[in-house]
Amino acid sequence: MELTTVWFALIAGLWIGYFCLEGFDFGVGMLLPVLARDDRERRVMINTIGPVWDGNEVWLLVAGGATFAAFPEWYATLFSGFYLPLLLILVALIVRGLSFEYRHKRDEAEWKARWDLAIIFGSIVPSLLWGVAFANIVAGVPIDADKEFTGNLLTLLNPFGLLGGIVMLTLFATHGAMFIALKTDGEIRHRARALAVRVGAVAAVLAVVFLVWTQARTGSLASAVAFAAAALLLLGGLVAAQAGREGWAFAGTFLTIGLAVAGLFLALFPDVMPSTTDAAFSLTTTNAASTAYTLKVMTWVAVFFTPIVLGYQAWTYWVFRKRISVHHIPTAKLAEVSR
């Protein structure tokens, strides 16, 4: 197997990891005003992702860095052509990170409410825009002979791209509700499980439409298998949630997102960014790649460091595996006394 194909698969794996892990982070954030009834329940929801959200974002950083090193032409065209959506995603992620750090600095309800809005904003915007971006990458965008994007923001906001954004938004909301049901106890757990089933049913319908549309436009046999498996696993996850099996339900949405993203990359291959202007202008794993020497060095670095990173992140999830509930959260008055 050529190293260009290996690195295409590795980058796909990094994006799969990012969406599967950061996906429930985003879901928890966007459901903050829906599931929580008071500040203690909001704190419970935030605490479910508190130990892991920043580690989950490492997948995004590594995916971007790997794309820059392995496929510099892809990186250049993508980040210049999608500059505004990616900038909005970056701003949203920064605001979201600040929210987690500053929300607890003061006890005033108004202060916390403002940071809660920032968490919600920082969760919805990336979820929606990542879906729009990946839908357009797979479907193709106008690229000229100089490998430059010739469209604009409105070019990306086409029906297919917008559907991709809505699908990712609803899938992440379902994934986040499943995670809350898995990680909490008490009333919030039951509300999250019920909401996961309702939102998941909507997500399933939208996802089937989007994946069938994707398959019809640019799919392959491999992508069809991945899409079909993703649909079945989502249905299985919803059935498990209905039966109160939160672990299996969360595994279902986790694998659904992973297989759906894998299917998108399988539908994309061997292109990395198709051109709708002329197929000859498309960026592929061959014409967008770095030199063979660069890829070889990167491969050895990946072989050495990847197990370390995976091991550390798995250990983090194991340490913080227990459920939490409102009785673990002191009231504001008790918290004041404890300080």
Rank of each mutant, 00 (worst) to 15 (best):
E2T: 03
E2H: 00
L10W: 01
G13E: 12
I16H: 10
G17T: 06
E22S: 15
F26Q: 01
V28W: 07
V28H: 07
V28K: 01
V28R: 08
G29A: 07
G29Q: 04
M30L: 12
D39A: 13
E41N: 14
E41W: 08
I46P: 00
I49A: 08
G55S: 09
N56P: 04
E57D: 07
E57I: 00
V58Q: 03
G64I: 01
G64S: 03
A69P: 02
E73Y: 09
W74V: 03
Y75E: 15
A76C: 11
A76Q: 04
S80N: 14
G81A: 10
Y83R: 12
L87C: 08
V91D: 00
A92I: 04
V95W: 03
S99T: 12
S99N: 08
R103S: 05
D107N: 00
R114Q: 15
D116Q: 12
G122R: 02
L128M: 08
G131V: 06
F134E: 01
I137A: 05
A139K: 08
V141S: 09
D144W: 05
K147L: 12
T150A: 15
G151S: 11
L153K: 13
P159M: 03
L163S: 14
M168E: 07
T170D: 05
F172C: 01
A173G: 15
H175R: 09
G176A: 09
A177R: 03
F179L: 09
L182Y: 03
T184K: 06
D185E: 10
I188V: 12
H190Y: 06
A194I: 06
A196Q: 06
V199Y: 07
A203M: 05
L206G: 04
A207E: 11
W213V: 04
W213E: 07
T214I: 07
Q215A: 08
A222G: 14
V225F: 10
F227I: 11
F227C: 10
F227M: 12
A229F: 09
A230K: 03
L232K: 10
G236C: 05
G236D: 01
L238N: 14
L238G: 07
L238P: 14
A240F: 11
A240N: 10
A243S: 04
A243P: 00
G244F: 00
W248Q: 01
W248H: 00
F250V: 06
L255Q: 04
T256G: 01
I257F: 10
V261C: 15
A262S: 15
L264P: 01
L264C: 14
L266T: 01
L268V: 04
L268N: 00
D271C: 09
D271F: 13
M273D: 02
P274M: 03
T277G: 09
D278T: 08
A280F: 07
S282F: 05
T284H: 02
A289D: 06
S290Q: 06
A292Y: 11
T294L: 07
T294A: 09
L295C: 12
K296D: 15
V301C: 13
V301L: 10
V301A: 14
G311K: 12
G311F: 12
Y312A: 05
Y317P: 06
Y317F: 02
V319Y: 13
K322Q: 04
I324K: 03
V326L: 11
H327V: 14
L334V: 14
L334A: 05
